[in-house]
């Protein structure tokens, strides 16, 4: 078992919570983990990514080599495309379709969708709408995790346990809202 995952988004969107849940699930399974994060200046509204590597064998590099990522999970459509050179030929992109526009020269959304559809394995999910529909607009990141959970090489039960542990200190209500968001994301695509 080996999954090299790039989590992408804009500073503040919550990619590290997705990483935390996947990491928690992998840790319980006894897998090796390495996760490189971005802190500091880039977090201020800039593009952010995290390299998450899970493997049953020891992991050497903290960074995923180009052409080796199994999956790009992105909370933003343009950010999904930024890491294309890291994606393997058989790799998957699972991305939110709602753009985060905080720059004047943001590309046309149609041209982004066209680019994304050119990728062999793509799942496009309107996670913002799904999160709102289940009454948890701040759980968009967990909806996205649900949408890609079948590609991560672990049973969905493990992620639910991960969600319980990660959010437990925020109260049962938050745990339940996130479990609902996770389930709503499973199987979703536009």
């Amino acid at each position: 078992m080996k999954k090299d995952i790039i989590l992408a988004g804009v500073g503040g969107q919550g990619i590290l919570s997705i990483a935390a849940v996947i990491g928690e699930a992998a840790l319980k399974e006894g897998f090796n983990i390495k996760q490189a994060e971005v802190h500091g200046m880039s977090q201020r509204g800039g593009d952010v990514q995290s390299n998450l590597r899970i493997s049953s064998n020891p992991i050497a590099s903290d960074l995923i080599p180009k052409g080796c990522a199994d999956i790009i999970i992105s909370l933003e459509p343009m950010e999904a495309l930024r890491y294309l050179p890291w994606l393997s030929k058989e790799g998957w992109i699972v991305t939110n379709t709602t753009p985060f526009i905080n720059i004047p020269n943001y590309p046309q959304i149609e041209s982004l969708m066209e680019e994304l559809r050119k990728i062999k394995n793509t799942i496009l999910v309107d996670v913002d709408t799904i999160a709102r529909d289940v009454g948890n607009p701040r759980g968009a990141n967990i909806v996205l995790l649900g949408a890609c959970s079948h590609l991560l090489g672990m049973e969905s039960q493990k992620f639910e346990e991960g969600i319980r542990r990660i959010f437990s200190d925020k109260g049962e209500e938050v745990v339940e809202a996130n479990l609902k968001a996770f389930r709503a994301g499973q199987g979703a695509s536009v």
Partner: peptide, 8 residues
Amino acid sequence: VVVPRPPA
């Protein structure tokens, strides 16, 4: 299509 997104 991708353009830079500098911090702000």
